[in-house]
Design a protein around this nucleic acid. Structure first.
Ligand SMILES: [Zn+2]
Ligand SMILES: [Zn+2]
Ligand SMILES: [Zn+2]
Ligand SMILES: [Zn+2]
Lengths: 135, 135
DNA sequence: TTACACTCTATAGTTACTATAGAGTCAAGT
DNA sequence: ACTTGACTCTATAGTAACTATAGAGTGTAA
């Protein structure tokens, strides 16, 4: 199949597929006489693997590492488990950060009801260090 | 004061300050004969305002809009409130997404105990559409 | 043959910075 | 007067993972 069909079937855009090739996540496919890329089913499967990983927010580098490990049979899979564990921690700390941010924004939002003239906006006042220290 | 002192006092890096100037968030300051930037206290206050906003993850564009509104006295401050409300929604949906991601990662992690040979790694198996559909 | 859909490469843009390189400024010490 | 050192200047490239475009070529059907 050509790149357009692969894009439709995989759910990746054409540019993304070419980008993955350039970054070494998928291997360069065969070409037609007219220099068009031609893909086989394994290529589609690789893209599906990448998509699954990206859905979990693994970086392209991490995905590359996973694919490299797959081609070293016999290796213990500790590295895979460690990667997922590390990832879990990052996600957890991002959630914590965002929850703090959310609380801060809620507090800020309550500084202003609505439709005051801008000079008296409680939000802007809260954000300004100058008028703030004066109160 | 020169840029180094402003950087220390504001907690922004020198490059960040120059970047903010280039992006129009702060106005270009006076220069010495030797072409060094010279700042006054209001400049420090503007940086503090920007820092407060960035801590809430407002984009530079949004911050620019807020600053523009500050210089239009008499305007009702609805736009400020709307911006914060919109921001709250984005943060909320990011949290939801991350929580889903976290749950997915947890499930994935449990597919593998530890230290199996890589061919039998439950995580890699789960990520691979091919071997997956075979089972 | 000409219209059309498709593909090719190369390049720039996105966000908010960070990190150089290479040159100039300025005050203090010798 | 000279040198050292700390500071500053501009311009440019890099970050992550794409997305979007320009301009050219390919392939097929009417
Ligand atoms: Zn990770
Ligand atoms: Zn308000
Ligand atoms: Zn926003
Ligand atoms: Zn495993």
């Amino acid at each position: 199949m050509k790149i357009g069909e692969l894009a439709k079937r995989s759910g990746c855009s054409i540019q993304t597929i070419r980008y993955y090739e350039k970054e070494g996540l998928i291997s360069a496919p065969a070409r037609t006489d007219g220099n068009f890329r031609v893909y086989d089913t394994p290529a589609l499967e690789k893209l599906a693997f990448i998509k699954n990983c990206r859905a979990l927010d693994l970086t392209l580098d991490e995905i590359k590492q996973l694919m490299a490990l797959q081609h070293l049979p016999g290796t213990p899979c500790e590295k895979v488990n460690d990667m997922i564990d590390a990832h879990l921690k990052i996600v957890e700390s991002r959630i914590t950060d965002l929850q703090k941010l959310h609380a801060d924004l809620k507090v800020l939002r309550q500084k202003c009801g609505h439709a005051r003239p801008i000079e008296q906006c409680g939000i802007l006042d809260e954000l300004s260090p100058k008028s703030h220290s004066r109160n």
